[in-house]
Write a protein that binds this DNA or RNA. Structure first.
Lengths: 206, 206
DNA sequence: CCCCGTATCAAACGAACGTTTGAAGGATAG
DNA sequence: CTATCCTTCAAACGTTCGTTTGATACGGGG
């Protein structure tokens, strides 16, 4: 009798995502993970090799898609000569918020991402920068063009604040229940709009 | 021969602060802490009772002063009828940034605080809310008065973004080297001014 | 002087950790 | 049926964890 329709690998990834989000990478043990996933303890090392590799696999499963969608959205912005700062921010925010609001563990993943943001673990930072940093750098170039009046140094630390604030906020959004009577899409559009406006105001501030 | 001019208790608190900031609460072991503090392993449980109590003591040592200074600064704002939103934000930001920029472990503490912000650990959240939540609620009241046009719900989640963004940013600021030739106070004032403007723009955004 | 409370120490406790092992299934191909 | 490969399993590996213990040193007050 299998405990779920998903494969052992997928069940491990799902359970790990939820537990890493809740207790952190060091705080969640492989025994907790395999117990929640209803698989044998040895399955983690069999399928992933080590706990560190499992952590990377959890990131990879979501970030490949998230990064691709952010990249595609940004490409559309760059193709449009009339695109505004708000459009670029939308390209950054929308894919992440859709992920945070989906029902298949996306919220847990965003909380895990926010945790990784707060951690200054060298190995994890290098992994994320090496594999997913190029899209962030593409965004930086576009923001630099749209905010040409800002000194490079000033722009970079504003982007740092904005990226941190957005990641932190979106991580918590999966937990907040939306107001009764509003549809899922209305809630999402409302949130995106406000996040974009909030971020744009901060980036443009004189 | 003592390894430092400070007492065993103080050396433990200092080492714990630095290691918790770097590796997290679960990730930093008492053996790392006591080794860095040059004290015996048993000293932690002798002076603090448990690792959890040590964590709380590390918070208490800094937060008592930080909260008091924020409270005092806010009281001055409330006493001034002409005070602006920027003044209130200054009252929130300045004490924390001064802590983050001081040379006696303040930077490590702010990184630790940002970590606690990202963690959703129930015990830690309750401890912080019970002991230090009242000042944050005072700020919320003032912001509510200064931004009366915003719906309560809207205000609260904007404050949530701002508090998170500021905490994250200030946590990283202790790590950033200031531009050559600028004085410590000039650097601080520059940073505070920009953080205040950034936060005010986000809070006021139409 | 002895006593007593405080502090430090090396050593050990049981529990939990990540990882490895070797045997047992279970499906598929020859 | 046998052989092979992939997967799962219980059990154990050595290590490290937070915590506890009992001995030892120290330092005034009676």
């Amino acid at each position: 009798m299998s405990a779920s329709q998903f494969s052992t690998k997928q069940r491990i990834l799902g359970a790990a995502e939820a537990l890493f989000a809740q207790h952190g990478f060091a705080g969640a043990s492989l025994r907790q993970v395999t117990s929640a996933a209803n698989v044998n303890l040895a399955a983690v090392n069999y399928h992933f090799g080590s706990k560190d590799n499992l952590i990377e696999a959890v990131f990879r499963r979501r970030l490949d898609a998230l990064n691709a969608r952010r990249h595609a959205a940004l490409a559309k912005v760059e193709a449009n000569p009339a695109a505004t700062l708000e459009d670029a921010l939308d390209a950054f925010i929308r894919p992440a918020l859709e992920l945070a609001l989906d029902r298949h563990g996306g919220a847990a993943f965003m909380r895990m991402l926010a945790r990784a943001y707060a951690e200054h673990d060298e190995r994890l930072r290098r992994f994320l920068s090496d594999n997913y940093g190029h899209v962030l750098r593409e965004f930086a170039v576009v923001f630099h063009r749209m905010l040409a009046h800002l000194a490079k140094e000033e722009l970079y630390w504003r982007l740092d604040i904005v990226a941190g604030a957005l990641t932190y906020t979106m991580a918590d959004f999966g937990l907040i229940k939306r107001r009764a009577g509003t549809s899922e899409t209305a809630h999402r559009e409302y949130t995106i709009e406000h996040l974009v406006r909030f971020a744009a105001a901060g980036l443009r501030a004189a």
